[in-house]
Design a binder for these strands. Structure first.
Lengths: 337, 337
DNA sequence: CACCCCGTTGGGAGCGCTCCCATTGGAAGC
DNA sequence: GCTTCCAATGGGAGCGCTCCCAACGGGGTG
């Protein structure tokens, strides 16, 4: 907080007066728009420097009807979902792309009812120039809010049961299929999957990939063994799997967190990885490299996902009509399979 | 994006007209301020519902000189610093507290020069009602920006070399001392430390804690072995430590990431943990529980840190003058030491 | 019955900026 | 030398909301 007298911030009028020009000219000079003589432009710049003028973003927003901010909304019934480093990566990408476009990032963790309400306000009132929505589950109230939103909305991953106009997604099915096929190609014949929440499209798509690969190899896919994308959930699912199918020799986990959990369970059960059971994850987050053994996993360009979402939103805000994007995944082979 | 005709959002004037009252009364009714008769209040509420009116936050911000948003600024020369799950936890806490106060969260990753410039704008122009600054390094340009900021600023952790007026920090020195003392108390006599970046106050404070504990036990502290708070950095530092002091039997790493790296190096070097070398970390992030062996570490209330920063900021915005806060840490004993 | 008090009410002046538009004047064209 | 054109300029009207303040009127008091 500034010390001393509560001197107001200088306004554009004061800058104009100091520079000996009209407010209009000062405004144009500031936004370096045309129709300003070199002399006046410099006079304005000098005045700005002398007064330490900084434009008031709120006033500008009101006049231009643009807030200069984009919202990133992460759904979930409980804030702990955000602990997944996946989101941090997305944010890094989105933040960079937004920064490039001169937009600020508003982060909304739509966990509590109160939070969801605030998101609704943001979307319905013009609290941002656009929004990115992620992690929607089936029947997510956010989906409806997105419909009513007074601004462009880009989805990160697709919501369940509907294909929005604009989204960026990873090739979940393809990646999962590749992972499973890899396990099969390495001679694993009894491959199970720990799938993510089936009330998310990513969870379903990855299960489809597993199923397709199994069917393609003439094998019976196991029914979905659902977990919640967390390490603990993965560990529990692995234990259940082991109890039911003691003879399995391969597991595709629908994300790295769950794969790490599976690894832990297998270690505790004395089932060496990959000797007895091979494990493949999905995401390729930092944890995959550090796991023991290092995790073979489906790499998903998470930072790019954030970046492309933001870019798509920027295009939308700029009046363009971008096309949805599906980012490629690729298998990264490490020691676990 | 709304379909159909580009109908404008209804304004307060339209609501007032519809309700048969003046704009003033409508405004008061909306903000449920006094001096509005029951009848008119209800008429306004009805009109709001019928028109689907949502107040324009920008206009409100301009009139009240309050943006309704708080910025969380994370410094760092490179966005990857944000990959540290530490920040995600802070955000969860801050977000919840801000939500309670009806403020939005603007997240600023001040990594690139461009990003820092935008933060400067935000802080100098009134782009937010207040800011929380984290992860400042020695000589960080953000420190000066904070001085000039036209809004209250709360620090998360203290900047190097200066104690700001308002901050929330963890008891870094105390925690590090406790960790080291624990190692010593378990009969480890040759205890080294992998300290974090010494251009951060947290890095320095934790080294001081180690040093104090060593001196307190009449032992010679080893000189700081600096790493960058990452897993890879921790692994490298551990390797160097092993090369120089092959006989060490205890390591205090200044955060969990580095501790996990150290664990990996020790495993690769065939030095069983904790049998030959005991390891203690700092932070108690999720990774500590999952590590192999599970990591003994200094628990730091990270979510509370975010929450308290936000609460302090809210108090400040509300015109109060809160006092700085130092949150307690505590040792969590697991298998690694 | 005059007077005062106070809850209601609405008019109007901003908040600080953008942008449309009419005006000006000098350079270029004939 | 006169018209034409256009860059440069500044006045003014908003953007949608808050809030001060004067005005109004009904009930209570002396």
């Amino acid at each position: 907080m500034a010390e001393g007298a509560p001197r107001r911030q200088p306004t554009l009028d004061e800058v104009a007066e100091r520079a000996g020009v009209s407010r209009s000219v000062a405004s144009r000079a500031l936004n370096n728009a045309p129709h300003v003589s070199r002399a006046k432009r410099e006079a304005v710049e000098r005045a700005v420097r002398q007064l330490g003028y900084v434009p008031n973003p709120t006033a500008r927003a009101l006049a231009t009807r643009q807030t200069g901010a984009a919202a990133l909304v992460i759904s979930g019934e409980d804030p702990s979902i955000f602990a997944d480093p996946f989101f941090a990566q997305v944010i890094v990408g989105a933040s960079a792309a937004l920064e490039e476009a001169g937009l600020h990032l508003m982060l909304c963790l739509a966990a509590s009812p109160r939070g969801r309400e605030r998101v609704a306000e943001l979307l319905r009132g013009k609290g941002a120039d656009g929004a990115m929505l992620m992690a929607l589950r089936e029947g997510d109230p956010l989906a409806e809010l997105a419909e009513r939103a007074e601004m462009p909305v880009v989805f990160g991953g697709r919501p369940v049961g509907a294909t929005p106009r604009w989204y960026v997604d990873a090739d979940n099915t393809g990646g999962a299929r590749e992972a499973t096929e890899y396990l099969l190609s390495r001679g694993r014949g009894r491959v199970a999957t720990i799938c993510g929440r089936l009330d998310t499209e990513a969870g379903r798509a990855r299960y489809r990939g597993y199923r397709d690969a199994m069917l393609g190899a003439g094998l019976d896919p196991l029914p979905p063994r659902e977990a919640d994308f967390t390490e603990a959930g993965g560990a529990a699912a692995m234990a259940a799997l082991l109890a039911e199918h003691g003879d399995l020799d391969g597991v595709f986990a629908a994300n790295d967190n769950m794969a790490v959990g599976a690894l832990r369970t297998l270690r505790e059960a004395g089932r060496p990885v990959p000797a007895e059971v091979a494990v493949v994850g999905f995401d390729d987050l930092a944890v995959a490299r550090v796991a023991d053994p290092p995790l073979t996993t489906v790499h998903q360009p998470v930072t790019a996902l954030g970046r492309e979402m933001a870019r798509m939103l920027v295009a939308l805000v700029g009046g363009q009509d971008p096309t949805p994007l599906i980012l490629p995944t690729r298998l990264v082979v490490r020691a676990s399979a």
